[in-house]
Simulated assay, not measured.
Amino acid sequence: MTIEQIAIRLADYCRKEQFTQALEALYADNAVSIEPFEFPGFEKETKGLNAMLEKDKKFSALVESRHGTTVSEPLIAGNSFCFVLMMDMKMKGRNREKLTELCVYTVANEKIVSEQFFM
C-alpha cells in the first residue's frame, strides 16, 4: 500500500469513528503514539500496538456519546501525512464539546509507525 492509500484509509476509518479497526489494519506492532500532554490515566507516550489498543479502549470507555467526527483531506510529504480531526462528543462527567487536533503520522514498510497529536 502506498502512503496515499494508507492516509485515505485512515481518514475514512476516522470519519466512520472506527478507531480500533484503523489500529488493527494500518499500524505496525511497534508503533508509537504521542499525545500533546499527559492527562490522568493516560501516558503522554504509548509504545506498541497492544498498548495503543488498550489506550483506545480506555478512551472509548470515557465517552458518553459521539455526535460526529470530521476529517480534512490528508496532506502528504515524503513518508509522513497529516490531517485535522474534529470530534463532537460528550465525555462522562463533562459538557458536550468539540475537540480539534492536528494528527501527524509517519509510515514505514506500509504501516503507520508513529502518530502525534497537536491541539
Results as ranks from 00 to 15, higher is better:
residue 86 M to D: 02
residue 95 N to M: 06
residue 97 E to S: 05
residue 87 M to T: 07
residue 87 M to R: 11
residue 98 K to W: 02
residue 88 D to I: 06
residue 81 F to W: 03
residue 78 G to D: 13
residue 92 K to A: 14
residue 104 V to F: 15
residue 103 C to E: 13
residue 89 M to T: 01
residue 104 V to W: 14
residue 106 T to F: 10
residue 75 L to P: 00
residue 98 K to D: 04
residue 99 L to C: 11
residue 75 L to K: 15
residue 106 T to D: 11
residue 73 E to Y: 10
residue 90 K to C: 08
residue 89 M to N: 03
residue 93 G to T: 09
residue 105 Y to A: 06
residue 101 E to V: 10
residue 94 R to Q: 13
residue 93 G to Y: 09
residue 103 C to S: 12
residue 87 M to F: 08
residue 82 C to K: 09
residue 92 K to Q: 15
residue 74 P to T: 00
residue 102 L to M: 12
residue 94 R to A: 12
residue 104 V to H: 14
residue 82 C to V: 13
residue 79 N to C: 11
residue 93 G to F: 10
residue 96 R to K: 14
residue 92 K to S: 13
residue 103 C to I: 09
residue 80 S to Y: 07
residue 97 E to N: 09
residue 84 V to N: 03
residue 81 F to Y: 10
residue 85 L to N: 05
residue 76 I to Q: 05
residue 85 L to Q: 06
residue 92 K to F: 12
residue 72 S to C: 00
residue 88 D to N: 15
residue 105 Y to T: 02
residue 101 E to R: 09
residue 86 M to W: 02
residue 92 K to E: 15
residue 101 E to C: 13
residue 104 V to N: 06
residue 81 F to V: 03
residue 104 V to G: 04
residue 98 K to T: 11
residue 72 S to Q: 04
residue 101 E to Y: 09
residue 95 N to S: 10
residue 82 C to N: 10
residue 74 P to L: 00
residue 95 N to P: 01
residue 100 T to P: 00
residue 80 S to K: 15
residue 101 E to M: 12
residue 74 P to Y: 01
residue 93 G to H: 12
residue 92 K to W: 04
residue 71 V to E: 00
residue 99 L to V: 14
residue 75 L to C: 03
residue 83 F to K: 09
residue 86 M to Q: 14
residue 84 V to K: 09
residue 95 N to W: 01
residue 88 D to F: 00
residue 91 M to N: 03
residue 102 L to K: 08
residue 86 M to I: 08
residue 93 G to I: 04
residue 91 M to H: 06
residue 100 T to G: 11
residue 79 N to K: 12
residue 84 V to D: 07
residue 86 M to G: 00
residue 83 F to L: 07
residue 101 E to Q: 12
residue 86 M to H: 06
residue 78 G to K: 08
residue 105 Y to M: 05
residue 106 T to E: 15
residue 77 A to S: 13
residue 80 S to D: 06
residue 98 K to G: 02
residue 74 P to D: 03
residue 78 G to E: 10
residue 106 T to W: 06
residue 106 T to R: 14
residue 78 G to T: 07
residue 71 V to M: 01
residue 95 N to C: 02
residue 85 L to T: 03
residue 85 L to R: 02
residue 98 K to P: 03
residue 73 E to C: 02
residue 87 M to A: 13
residue 97 E to L: 05
residue 86 M to K: 15
residue 93 G to A: 05
residue 90 K to G: 02
residue 84 V to C: 11
residue 92 K to P: 10
residue 84 V to H: 12
residue 84 V to P: 07
residue 93 G to N: 09
residue 89 M to R: 05
residue 105 Y to K: 08
residue 89 M to C: 03
residue 103 C to L: 09
residue 81 F to Q: 08
residue 85 L to P: 02
residue 106 T to H: 13
residue 73 E to I: 01
residue 83 F to Y: 15
residue 99 L to W: 11
